[in-house]
Computed example of a mutant assay.
Amino acid sequence: MAQRTVLVVLFDDVQSLDVTGPMEVFAGAEKHTPGAYRVRTASLTGRPLRTSSGLTVVPDGTLADAPAPHTLLVPGGQGTRRPAPHLVDWVRAHGPGAERLVSVCTGAILLAEAGLLDGRRATTHWAYCESFARDHPAVRVEADPIYVRDGHVATSAGVTCGIDLALALVEDDLGRDAALAVARHLVVFLRRPGNQAQFSAQLAAQTARREPLRDVQQWITEHPGADLSVDALAARARLSPRHFARAFRAETGATPGRYVDRVRLEHARRLLEDTPDGVEEISRASGYGTPEAMRRAFVKALGTSPAEYRRRFRTAPAR
């Protein structure tokens, strides 16, 4: 088995977890399968640098002297918003030579600045997706997934998503058992699929300030198949339907109906991903009532049917 060199690019104001998260995954895989990976870090100068959290990191050496990588990994952080021109030049010159090009969080911005994402699908931290798409119109930015793979190029969303992507790469390289062993050691999920949303429905909305409304949010999450009409939810909050709808939107940023739609869609996606249950059973459990109602919701939100969604998920290489 050929050893894969993973080269992590470092720069001032890099996000430390973008660096250490994937490095821990690859280092753990090396312990599980000796000879699988050689992980190295490098910067323009090779001198110690400070991460965005204030942690000082000492690179293994300079980018000029770095070994030709199998996997070139570019982390994110504040430093990607004002990258040194020489760093962009180095990535532009050496990125195409890597067998696998990977970014974590806003590291995708650096890849885009180097022209390596033109015409490709990519993602980054949710907070920067809009500006990323505006500044780099040649990149097809996908704001929802936690990571996106387009050929030999893989980009991940914010911070901890780099761990998910690294585990997916280890699973590709060494198999599920190796990735599972690393995930267990790090006490993380083996596989959050790349098409999983960056935000759950609860995180996508604000948390209500008032306790009755927070309780209703929790009830919706725990009972997606229940009667979640405005009247029923208002009664649970002990408010009039009109008052409830107005207060819920003011405190969460979403109408009750929109919030319920998000929760039900997320619940149905998880059941399609993680269970063998049939579409009819899942449609009832998720509150859609009929397979046709769930199909319409999936087509509207995701552009695909539940059956096709499950097929794509279970055949995707990102597993």
Rank of each mutant, 00 (worst) to 15 (best):
E99K: 10
E99G: 15
V102A: 02
V102Y: 06
V102Q: 05
V104Q: 02
G107E: 06
I109C: 04
I109A: 09
I109R: 02
L110I: 03
L111A: 09
A114L: 09
G115M: 12
L116W: 09
L116K: 07
G119I: 08
G119D: 08
G119V: 07
R120H: 13
R121F: 05
R121S: 05
R121C: 02
T123I: 06
T124W: 03
H125Y: 06
H125I: 01
W126C: 01
A127G: 15
A127L: 13
A127P: 08
Y128N: 13
C129S: 14
C129N: 02
E130A: 15
E130W: 03
S131D: 13
R134V: 09
D135T: 12
H136N: 14
P137H: 08
P137A: 10
A138D: 15
A138V: 11
R140T: 09
R140L: 04
R140P: 00
V141A: 08
V141E: 01
V141L: 06
V141M: 04
A143Q: 07
D144Y: 04
I146L: 08
V148I: 12
V148H: 08
R149E: 13
D150F: 01
H152M: 13
H152Y: 13
V153Q: 04
V153I: 15
A154R: 00
T155A: 02
A157E: 00
G158A: 08
T160I: 06
C161G: 02
C161N: 08
I163N: 01
D164E: 08
A166Q: 05
L167T: 06
L167K: 05
L167Y: 04
A168D: 11
A168K: 08
L169E: 09
L169Y: 07
E171V: 06
E171R: 15
E171H: 12
D172G: 14
D173M: 09
D173W: 10
L174S: 05
G175Q: 05
R176M: 13
R176P: 10
D177Q: 14
L180E: 11
L180A: 14
A181D: 03
V182R: 00
V182H: 00
R184K: 14
R184M: 12
H185Q: 14
H185R: 10
H185D: 13
L186I: 08
V187I: 11
V188R: 08
V188F: 10
V188L: 11
F189Q: 14
R191D: 12
P193L: 09
G194W: 02
N195G: 08
N195V: 11
Q196Y: 14
